[in-house]
């Protein structure tokens, strides 16, 4: 009986290693592909202040009077509705009574890209009721 269980266990592990485990990176990749364009936009325009790790610690952050928002923080990001996130990206911090240091990107990013970035920020923080 024990031998049977061992054999069955070994077969299951073998099955997993052949079919399931190799599929995991592919699943992760397809998940990332959904945000590929938004990620590139973020890396180009946002990381200078919000950081490579999306944590508000960009290369410019040490000289700024107001710390850029930590996009990886579910607590700080969770209460902000998508509409406000999109509004701030498009019209800048002043549009939501936030810092002038967050500029308006509406001349550079189109509405679809702003929508993609908003969804990407939800993905980064893994938070928000309307994610």
């Amino acid at each position: 009986m024990d031998v049977k269980k061992t054999v069955l266990g070994a077969l299951l592990i073998g099955f997993a290693s052949i079919f399931i485990i190799p599929a995991l990176p592919a699943m992760a990749a397809s998940d990332n592909n959904q945000y590929q364009h938004a990620e590139r936009l973020y890396d180009t325009y946002c990381t200078q202040c919000h950081g490579v790790n999306r944590d508000g610690n960009g290369i410019n952050s040490t000289n700024m009077s107001v710390q850029p928002r930590d996009h990886s923080d579910p607590k700080g990001m969770g209460d902000i509705p998508n509409s406000e996130i999109a509004e701030v990206i498009k019209k800048g911090g002043l549009a939501a009574n936030k810092s002038v240091l967050m500029p308006a990107w509406g001349d550079i990013l189109n509405d679809e890209e702003i929508k993609e970035l908003t969804a990407y920020l939800r993905h980064v923080c893994q938070c928000g009721s309307d994610q």
Binding site: T47, V52, I59
Partner: peptide, 19 residues
């Protein structure tokens, strides 16, 4: 200071991104 263009030459540091 961070090259052309900056994103290719910065990396996470202890407190903030560094060049």
């Amino acid at each position: 200071p961070a090259g052309e263009f900056y994103r290719k030459y910065v990396k996470p540091g202890e407190k903030s991104d560094i060049i």
